[in-house]
């Protein structure tokens, strides 16, 4: 399988703080990968860098064959692209914005996804529950037809019904050759749908492994495997 994403020696600093240092990783085409790490480990930062939202870094980030941030924006759909919409607008109005601004946005897919997720498009975004707001963000993000999707903490503070529905929509609507990177700090929810995991720690990717391989080689659940990297530290606290 070819790689959709390759990162070489990526270093990134903000406000004089090193956030990522000499990070290397790659993602195979057509997979679903969990980006795991504690809060503040740099998961969101890594996604911002991949998406093209952050431009001041050292090293190389290549999506498909594109390395410049503005070219990468065409190939990546990042859930944070819904951050600053007018929350008092109706969902259908917000969707029109994405339809106009992203040439790769499929209105048809969006409509079918919203139906699947039971979203009422005539409602206002700020009237929705947290779970439904996240469903909407996922619907917008997945409605762009791109090679790489970045979903940042889609299950944070979401009720279990919405969580299940979102997971089902990811499985149902992921184009076969597209890759999805999902960040999470409690893997348990999504362990079953992952092909592999990346663990961010100490400003680098310290683990990049196939999920079933972990179960096979270590006889451990993904969650236990992930937590084993933090065990020593908790006792020190």
């Amino acid at each position: 399988m070819t790689d959709i994403l390759t990162i070489k020696n990526l270093s990134y600093k903000r406000n004089l703080t090193n956030i990522l240092n000499q990070l290397n990783c790659s993602l195979p085409t057509g997979s679903i990968v969990g980006l795991l790490g504690e809060n503040g480990a740099g998961k969101t930062t890594l996604m911002r860098l991949i998406s093209g939202a952050a431009n001041h870094y050292r090293g190389e980030i290549k999506v498909s064959s594109e390395t410049s941030p503005s070219d990468r924006k065409q190939l990546v759909s990042f859930s944070h692209q819904v951050d600053d919409v007018n929350r008092s607008d109706r969902l259908e109005k917000i969707a029109h914005f994405y339809e106009a601004v992203y040439p790769d946005f499929s209105t048809n897919k969006f409509q079918r996804l919203s139906e699947f997720l039971n979203l009422d498009l005539s409602r206002h975004l700020n009237d929705l529950s947290k779970g439904n707001q996240m469903k909407f963000i996922i619907a917008i993000t997945l409605s762009r037809q791109v090679k790489l999707y970045l979903l940042d903490e889609p299950f944070d503070g979401i009720d279990s019904m919405s969580r299940k529905k979102i997971i089902a929509s990811i499985l149902q609507w992921k184009p076969e050759d597209a890759t999805i990177l999902i960040s999470d700090h409690h893997v348990d929810d999504i362990a079953n749908i992952l092909d592999g995991i990346l663990i961010v720690k100490d400003k680098r990717i310290i683990v990049s492994k196939n999920a079933d391989k972990i179960r096979e080689d270590y006889g451990q659940s993904i969650e236990d495997f992930f937590e084993s990297f933090y065990k020593g530290e908790d006792q020190n606290d």
């Binding site: 057509g30 997979s31 679903i32 499985l171 079953n192 749908i193 079933d212």
Partner: peptide
């Protein structure tokens, strides 16, 4: 894909 959705697992895992 339908098996993947019903069993809530990855398509590649089903394929394997």
């Amino acid at each position: 894909r339908q098996l993947a959705v019903t069993l809530t697992v990855n398509v590649n895992t089903i394929q394997r």
